[in-house]
């Protein structure tokens, strides 16, 4: 028996919005410690890694490890039927071919149940090595989304350049060029408003705008985003998911001319 109950059901709705444009389907690996999902987009340019710890749920039970292959378009349709203040429970029998979503209104007056067929997915799992990154940049997630959106007007790529002075985002195309520099902030009232740059070595890498913009669908999950970069390795874009876990997007760089 697998059962995971989340009083703050809106978090699950936001997680779905954050992955459904990038992935058509994905396996949810449910284990005693929590739920993991790792999947590449169709083009294998990016990878999504989602981690929801058991401690973050209001009730969590997983007697045996189960892998639930889900069509994310279908799952998204179902989660759209949940109100933002609904309590969401996911449950499945040990060797079931369906998963059930239960939505309870806060006053328990309305209870909706949706059963969805599971899929057998044969997805390639990649081993993500532990990496010490040269540059770790924390910035407000809304600011990052704004920068990606604004620079998308200029070209297909965004160059992210991190030095000890701060971080620079640039794009170039037919209409001209754009450069946005963010300096490390001094003291701020709220920690989430800060721009913090932790740099060992300066790094400059080029990434696809299209994917960066898809990652920013996770913005409602967290006021802050963390970018980790090292030369010639994928960028990591991480959003915390409340007290439950995190979503990490890995994006392979564009290399050469």
């Amino acid at each position: 028996m697998f059962e995971a109950r989340l009083v703050q059901g809106s978090l699950l709705k936001k997680v779905m919005e954050a992955i459904k444009d990038l992935l058509n389907e994905a396996s949810f690996d449910c284990a005693h410690s929590g739920i993991l999902l790792q999947a590449m987009d169709n083009s294998h340019v990016s990878l999504v890694s989602l981690n929801l710890r058991k401690e973050g749920f209001d009730k969590y039970r997983c007697d045996r490890n189960i892998v639930m292959g889900m069509n994310l378009t279908s799952m998204s349709k179902i989660l759209k039927c949940a109100s933002n203040d609904d309590i969401i429970t996911m449950k499945a029998q040990d060797s079931a071919d369906t998963v059930t979503f239960v939505f309870e209104s806060p006053n328990q007056e309305k209870v909706s149940e949706y059963e969805m067929k599971l899929m057998n997915l044969d997805q390639d799992q990649l081993g993500i090595p532990e990496t010490e990154y040269c540059c770790i940049i924390k910035l407000p997630s809304g600011e990052f989304a704004r920068i990606c959106r604004d620079l998308s007007q200029f070209g297909e790529s965004i160059v992210i350049s991190c030095t000890k002075e701060g971080v620079k985002f640039s794009a170039a195309g037919d209409i001209g060029t754009a450069n946005i520099k963010l300096a490390q902030t001094g003291t701020v009232d709220k920690e989430e408003d800060a721009v913090i740059v932790d740099m060992q070595e300066p790094v400059t890498l080029t990434f696809s705008c299209k994917y960066l913009n898809m990652f920013t669908k996770a913005t409602p999950l967290s006021p802050q985003v963390c970018l980790s970069m090292s030369p010639d390795v994928p960028l990591v874009v991480e959003y915390k998911i409340g007290e439950i876990g995190h979503i990490r997007y890995y994006l392979a760089p564009r290399i050469g001319d």
């Binding site: 990016s46 799992q125 990649l126 081993g127 696809s208 392979a252 760089p253 564009r254």
Partner: peptide
């Protein structure tokens, strides 16, 4: 604007 690399170039099979 460069060659788009793929994830397999960096991360091997688990």
């Amino acid at each position: 604007q460069g060659t788009q690399m793929r994830m397999e170039s960096f991360f091997g099979a688990a």
